[in-house]
Nucleic acid binder design. Structure first.
Lengths: 342, 342
DNA sequence: GTGAAAGCGCTAACAA
DNA sequence: TTGTTAGCGCTTTCAC
């Protein structure tokens, strides 16, 4: 039996030549006589030799690896984000290494350090919250980085949805269809994009239509179906009766709301309209099909990847500094909102 | 401004000592006088120095990286698989690198080679199909590997669900509740676990109850909601009327079937019962809530990770050879199947 | 055209 | 206790 892990020199010995020549053949660089080249190629094929990426990277200072830090890999949008990122970068010859934090900020920091050790060529940080410590940690890494999901405060390039405009558009749609008392199920304000901005869009729309904010119609959930159910119940109780519509900050909470409403013996959208944000398979195929803002997380991932790639290629120091990229969203009208009611 | 990427020697210079001592401090190995140790530690903290993992790996022959090859990262079960794997391995100090194949067998092979280059310490292959070429490719890698989702044919350790027993149990449940004409929406037989075995479980149950297989009740989908819708329609048309129940090989197709049935003006489970396999959030919260086999993909991922870890630790050559690990499944009874009907 | 040799950043054996 | 040194496997001058 042959040695299980061969190196350049082993190949060179087998082909009766030097490691330099083998290296030249593998990287098709420099001159190698056809005869020798062929001899080497045969050995290469026979052995299924693969060069050691570490030794290579040690020399080139390029790992051809991208680190992705995310709060929860088993969440629809994260999965799509990663798919988009991976799709883009695998075409450029890069691999993606995962940093799943389970929403722990400490783990976010750990991964930042770990990725530096692993010499990743770039990092994409899918953020749910962004603190000053994040900024200083990121700065001292000296690694190209792109933030997703939150606007950076210090010029780090980022990719986000225009939360305010989006939520405003959806709320307008409800208002235009004569819904007045619109309950809003949001999330904690630590998450600026979803917790603050999305709600702001809702409030802006109300204001423009001359409707006063009613605290009784506001409630907070935690992204999950159950929390949406509970939050919806709270709104009903605070308000004293059923509102015209419920706007949930994501589709899962919208489904929770739908379940609560159906449990009350009410119909959707006959009695109450419901809409959400996200717009994946879930919203598309739920019963009833849910009107929601479609956030294309796959494209967002791709956009972040593209940004990061340009950052990696460029050596200009402040290239793309302060760049904020907005990803397209789309209002998808389905069957959970009553049209022209009053 | 200081050099942005420092190495051991830089730190040694700053601390006026040698790189060996710095290395000793970092790895807390060997002796270093407290005074020197402290001096070094200060520099380490100030600079936020991180050792180059490549140089380290080049020496130790350990990359502390695990490669995961999967057909589609943005699928619920894949996401859970990866979460389980990552959860287990991150605790052991390993990182996970992704190989997303988008169901391309060629990419599977490419990733096998790439992961060898990247010197991963182990590989988890989430397979949908397993060919002889897979076997020979895997063998020549000389890297510990665990297969998920399909039974290996050559002794490579693997983690699977007991598809036959599971499908049989679900079918029995339908039969026990007096469903006779049970339509089955399966998938292509290239996927042995889902395409062949899951269906076999269904057929076994029928046979044990003395019911003959009726080809008109069989149809093939492609895992998606739409394909489930179409497959269900085909069953209705072939059969000439509504069957008592539809057993879909996954929850998405079950939802497709539900949509088709509702579109026919029929009710669920009043007129037709529907059940699926998977049992994630989708099935739990759909309207109606779907009776399905819960496959805990997170645990499956964790089980595979544990197996691989043991494989990596052990140097016995045929340790765990032929090991097949079955992951627990559970029949979750909800509201989409009519009880004791006839 | 080809091979010898230096060096990437780190660890570990050895010497001091 | 500490520093020097020899690799780990690869790329890349630089002689030949």
């Amino acid at each position: 039996m042959t040695k299980s892990i061969l190196n350049l020199k082993d190949i060179a010995n087998l082909a009766q030549t030097s490691s330099s020549s083998v290296s030249r053949v593998i990287n098709s660089s420099g001159y190698v006589k056809k005869e020798v080249r062929d001899r080497i190629q045969v050995i290469l094929d026979e052995t299924g030799y693969r060069p050691n990426a570490f030794a290579k990277a040690l020399h080139s200072k390029k790992s051809l690896t991208i680190g992705v830090i995310l709060p929860k890999i088993n969440a629809t949008s994260s999965g799509e984000n990663v798919a988009g990122i991976d799709d883009y970068f695998s075409k450029q010859g890069y691999s993606v290494i995962l940093g799943n934090t389970n929403h722990s900020v400490d783990k976010e920091f750990e991964y930042l350090d770990l990725f530096k050790e692993k010499q990743v060529d770039g990092i994409i940080l899918i953020a749910t919250t962004l603190t000053p410590e994040h900024q200083s940690r990121i700065k001292r890494l000296h690694i190209p980085i792109v933030i997703m999901g939150q606007k950076s405060l210090d010029g780090t390039p980022c990719v986000v949805f225009n939360e305010i405009a989006a939520a405003q558009e959806l709320t307008n749609y409800l208002l235009d269809n004569h819904h007045h008392n619109i309950g809003y199920i949001g999330v904690s304000e630590e998450d600026v994009s979803v917790g603050v901005e999305r709600k702001q869009g809702y409030l802006n729309a109300l204001e423009k239509h001359g409707i006063k904010k009613d605290e009784r119609l506001l409630s907070i959930g935690a992204f999950s179906v159950i929390s949406g159910y509970d939050a919806c119940q709270r709104i009903f109780e605070q308000f004293g009766s059923a509102p015209d519509a419920i706007f949930a900050a994501n589709d899962k909470m919208a489904i929770g709301a739908i379940n609560y409403i159906l449990d009350q013996g009410l119909s959707i959208p006959g009695d109450v309209s419901v809409c959400g944000v996200g717009g994946g398979v879930f919203a598309q195929h739920y019963n009833p099909k849910i009107t929601s803002l479609f956030y294309d997380s796959n494209s967002a991932g791709r956009a972040a990847a593209n940004l990061l790639y340009r950052l990696i290629q460029s050596d200009e120091k402040d290239f793309l500094k302060n760049h904020i990229e907005f990803v397209q969203y789309k209002l998808e009208i389905r069957n959970s909102v009553k049209l022209n009611s009053n």
